[in-house]
Design a protein around this nucleic acid. Sequence first.
DNA 1: GTTGACACGTGTCTTG
DNA 2: CAAGACACGTGTCAAC
Lengths: 225, 225
Amino acid sequence: MPADTPGRPRASPPAAEPASARRTPSKPRSAAEHRKSSKPAMEKRRRARVNASLAQLKALILDALSQDSARHSKLEKADILEMTVRHLRSVRRVHMTAALSADPAVLGKYRAGFNECLAEVNRFLAGCEDVPADVRSRLLGHLAACLGQLGPSRRTAPPPPAAEVPTPEVYVGSPPLPAFDGPFPPLRPGAAFALPLLQALTGAPPAAPLAGLQGRGVPWRPWLR
Amino acid sequence: MPADTPGRPRASPPAAEPASARRTPSKPRSAAEHRKSSKPAMEKRRRARVNASLAQLKALILDALSQDSARHSKLEKADILEMTVRHLRSVRRVHMTAALSADPAVLGKYRAGFNECLAEVNRFLAGCEDVPADVRSRLLGHLAACLGQLGPSRRTAPPPPAAEVPTPEVYVGSPPLPAFDGPFPPLRPGAAFALPLLQALTGAPPAAPLAGLQGRGVPWRPWLR
DNA sequence: GTTGACACGTGTCTTG
DNA sequence: CAAGACACGTGTCAAC
């Protein structure tokens, strides 16, 4: 989705240059010649290398997701990578959780969960341009506000009555590639209020295919339709 | 400057358009013509897809190893994958051991937080008609999936059926190297776009379970030389 | 038929 | 200069 080309300006004129023969035909026709001929072969080895790792990754990620390996696996190359990325992200957050579990801040846990969800929403929305920008910021702002009044987040002044400034500690993904997920606009919705305590989608899945279809390690390409 | 920018300055074919249609079929050419021209373009998109995931993976693995994301990253494509494989393997071990001790006491809280955020998103989106329905369901589905793989939510499936290493892999070389994760200096000042400060609260570095030999994530190509 | 995925060989650019 | 790495376009082959 991110359009075809996420706007990748590669300012480099093709400069149609018919490379004329300028090779000096004076070569020590010995080993060098065969080195040259092995260039395709080397490329092949390189490919084999990534493919090997890819296969291992596939196995790892497949069973990490408790998806019966092989069965119903039409994972294509890029899917493996994407799934791996997602899995690593999730792994990282549970690690963070583990670090938090040391101290009795259980509330911190709760906040961490909420926060991670927020980050996930942000990440997701970043790759979706069919959702208006203002909606996105409103959503994120709202969520941030919710987080803010979730309880005192230690480290800030204990009684910071005002200024639950939307500075959510979300981890906005890696900047390198997508080029979009920058800092989202600080926006505050007027309607922030207490949170209910409920189980969410028990009976309220608009169309959410749960585990089985979408749930497990499926490709899940958001941009594709 | 090891090509940090995913946008690597390279030739960019401006998709030259062969204006001369040597065959003028009575069919609407707008269809057929673009079909043909999109052949290389599609391949390019595919590549972009894996590269995107690859870049994200690089970032993830790099910070998991607490190495500076850009500095000294001569990581080449296949290296990222291999490092990822090693990391995932080590993570699995950790997970295994962690499963014994930390049980659903705290995890439940985390899930609760995540879950609550999910509910909030759901409620918010319900009153928002300018966001496409499918996006909404996809978001919720994704979040649900995240929650699902967050960990065993009691009442779900019994313990993973011997999630042990089936190790059906033909791992060339590196017999003994169990873990890896050997960050040299566990110190990282800049910490560009690292974790949310939640982690900073506890001062817990991301995954760094075992001290490893083999310095930083060395490519370590077994067969090559 | 088309569409999408993959492996291949080659050109181009960076680096030691 | 060679060695290496990457992106590119194309041919081949399996599926809706």
